[in-house]
Design a binder for these strands. Structure first.
Lengths: 265, 265
DNA sequence: TGCATCTTATGAACACCGTTCTAGAGCGGA
DNA sequence: TCCGCTCTAGAACGGTGTTCATAAGATGCA
């Protein structure tokens, strides 16, 4: 339902259709009028519902079609294939991010906080939908909504005074970090499905104990750091914030610096 | 063939079997003696061969079994399921990394170069095997070889004087970065399968042109940075080195610090 | 040596998957 | 009413991971 709003809130006319994306297929004939209308948006919403309830692995064309009381073949009038559906899912997430974003105009003073805020927002959207982050793997979010999100991120990064080549790449870097983090968090959570999230650190204790049981003469560092390695509290937010801070400090070091690729490598 | 050596070079007796990993199944009976012996190692090697030739998506239990002239069911005597085979693949890669590593004893002077060197080595191993990096997603490399690799990385990071909590997390961060980078590089390469790798940047020019064709009033930054965003030369090494440098600078900023978040280099 | 037993190998089957083919249902215009 | 057209969706195709029952070979024992 939010999909339609997300689309309307940003006119789709101002984004020319990219050369690689097929135009939406049409499709309506003898409508039974009682079962929910099929459409690209409705299909994406159904897919999100399924992922929320059963996870990405349970997402199949048959399963989506079942949500409309029909067979998988019917979907192919609106979506080229499953891969295109995945791409639409990616763009749906980007739409959520753009919709929920409200931050001040980026400046050289607030850019650091704004970058963090936007990355946190994206993470929040992802972890709200189980392992939805998996569909981002190997995909560039250059859909209608994705472009707006990228533009937003670029505007923040450039307000901080990052050189162009760093700003251009920082979005990629942060995006991949956040996707990987969301997937990993889901992995831990699903590996111990019975424990409540607040006790997840307790479940990881088993692995910590194993690491500490390794022969200390061969694995001195692993044995000693088993504790901090397996430390996860506050639903993984500590780890997330730590990595985010590392990347931010790295990016920051390029602000107003003259070191171009020479200093790199 | 290197699998056996990798195993032998590091005695497997010094690593107690973790509680979650099932012990290797046995298995040999009426051997036809002409078809290649089935074993855990042989199965992993066959899987690597298939990935090298056809990619991860082509890897199936039937396809692996076909390599031995038998049916998929035969594999289940040596491998619990496909997931365990994937885990073995991950550890095979880690074994390659450990085998190929030769660096000096890490010190406070050389730790920065050694970290980069080890990350580059891991990347090299991954990109040599198509999209093998995909197997790492959602998996923690805590197999026999993985533990040795993690121990090695920890020893380097701690030699640099990183605080324990940063050192413990840095391995994760770098690992995820390198896997994501390897996957992304394969994605670009496979999206334009016809172009030679040296002309890949030319193929990306299409996307750059599209980004530059966006309405500048809505996407000023995207239009202006389309060039650097889609810049990829030297087989993606520039991008890889840039991100690596960003993370390294971020890690570096924690050396000998009291870990106060306000301490911004 | 002959026979029972035990272990391993594997073809067939099951329940899925993404995708395509095609018969047919519903509609607008003649 | 009937034609022509568009869109629908059941059935089918070739694939997947996994399980099961049976077959085949090796081994222990009399």
């Amino acid at each position: 339902m939010t999909v339609a709003r997300a689309r309307d809130s940003r006119s789709s006319a101002d984004v020319p259709t990219p050369p690689w994306a097929p135009q939406p297929r049409g499709g309506r004939a003898g409508r039974s009028a009682d079962k929910p209308q099929l459409s690209r948006e409705a299909i994406v919403e159904a897919a999100v519902r399924i992922i929320d309830a059963e996870g990405v692995d349970a997402l199949s064309m048959r399963r989506v079609a079942q949500e409309f009381g029909t067979g998988a073949a019917s979907l192919y009038a609106y979506v080229a294939n499953k891969d295109e559906l995945m791409e639409l899912l990616v763009d749906w997430v980007m739409g959520q991010v753009v919709d929920r974003w409200d931050g001040p105009e980026p400046t050289a003073q607030n850019w650091r906080d704004l970058v963090k805020q936007s990355v946190r927002l994206s993470r929040d959207v992802l972890v709200e939908h189980r392992d939805l982050a998996k569909v981002f793997i190997g995909r560039v979010p250059f859909g209608q909504n994705g472009l707006h999100a990228v533009e937003l991120q670029l505007s923040i990064l450039r307000a901080g005074g990052l050189p162009d080549n760093i700003a251009a790449y920082a979005g990629d870097l942060l995006g991949r970090y956040l996707v990987a983090e969301a997937i990993e968090e889901h992995m831990w959570r699903s590996r111990f499905p019975d424990v409540s999230s607040s006790e997840l650190s307790e479940a990881m204790g088993g692995i910590r104990d194993y690491l500490q049981s390794l022969p200390v003469e061969h694995f001195p560092n692993l044995v000693e750091l088993a504790g901090p390695m397996m430390y996860q509290e506050n639903e993984g937010l500590d780890r997330f914030e730590l990595g985010l801070e590392v990347i931010m400090r790295g990016l920051e070091s390029f602000v107003d610096s003259k070191d171009s690729p020479d200093n790199v490598r």
